[in-house]
């Protein structure tokens, strides 16, 4: 499997480490149902069969966090972008 890093280009997946589902938002600790929200945030995942967005770290490369679009049924990788808008801006 090869991962397209927006900074380094197409690289072997061994250079990256995988964190998991992208787009999880840290809940507001003062919300009335904060406990339930934190439970979901820490433990509950979509675990989608199909195209997903997930966080990968280019650990043995530019060390950017990137969001990779990948199909969990086929391992096909269809895109990537920097996870942080600041990195995106700095890379331009």
């Amino acid at each position: 499997m090869r991962i397209p890093c927006p900074f380094c280009g197409s690289r072997d997946s061994q250079e990256f480490s995988f964190l998991g589902q992208a787009g999880l938002k840290r809940p507001d600790p003062t919300a009335p149902d904060a406990q339930k929200q934190f439970h979901d945030y820490v433990h509950i995942r979509d675990n989608k069969a199909g195209v997903t967005k997930e966080l990968w770290l280019h650990a043995n490369g530019c060390r950017s966090w990137i969001i990779v679009e990948r199909n969990t049924l086929t391992h096909e990788v269809t895109g990537s972008e920097f996870a942080s808008p600041m990195t995106k801006e700095a890379a331009q």
């Binding site: 499997m1 072997d12 997946s13 061994q14 480490s17 995988f18 998991g20 675990n47 069969a49 997903t52 997930e54 990948r70 969990t72 049924l73 086929t74 391992h75």
Partner: peptide, 13 residues
């Protein structure tokens, strides 16, 4: 293999 998958086959690493 360290990434989520529903394909019952892995990769070379």
């Amino acid at each position: 293999d360290y990434y989520t998958s529903y394909a019952a086959r892995g990769n070379l690493p």
